[in-house]
Amino acid sequence: MEQYEKIYLYRRVVKAKLYIDNHFADNLDLNNISEQAHFSKFHFIRIFKSVYRLTPKNYLIKVRIENAKKLLAEGHTVLQSGCMVGLESPTSFAGMFKKITGLTPSSYQKLENERRTKMLQNPLLFVPNCFAENQGWTK
């Protein structure tokens, strides 16, 4: 590890990243995230972006939307999903969701429901036939 310069900086950035991963539903702002890493706000944003290619703010949005996708797929309503990832305004949740995924939350949920239903009703549609035959999984 000694070949890496300033490894302690990465350790602190990772700690902040994991903090976002674990607290995305809370009312986070850059100040309390950078405090976790013991950086100034400016320094933190610069280093975070160099590691994760996103600003902390945009990374937080990404984590929230990824988790909202899981919640929608599990059957939570659009309103519930937004609230559960820390985006309580339905309008801003729907806007961010569409900006990142290209779909509205309800369209995403409908597509995901259809896919899951198909997967449960006819799983062999998702398995390459060579594997299915070897396993004795037949239609």
Partner: peptide
């Protein structure tokens, strides 16, 4: 993209490494 950061994160999550970076 960044092995040092990825190593730190995975180690924190309990992933076992048999060779460090």
């Amino acid at each position: 993209k960044n092995l040092a950061a990825t190593y730190e994160e995975l180690t924190a999550k309990g992933v076992v490494f048999k060779k460090p970076p």
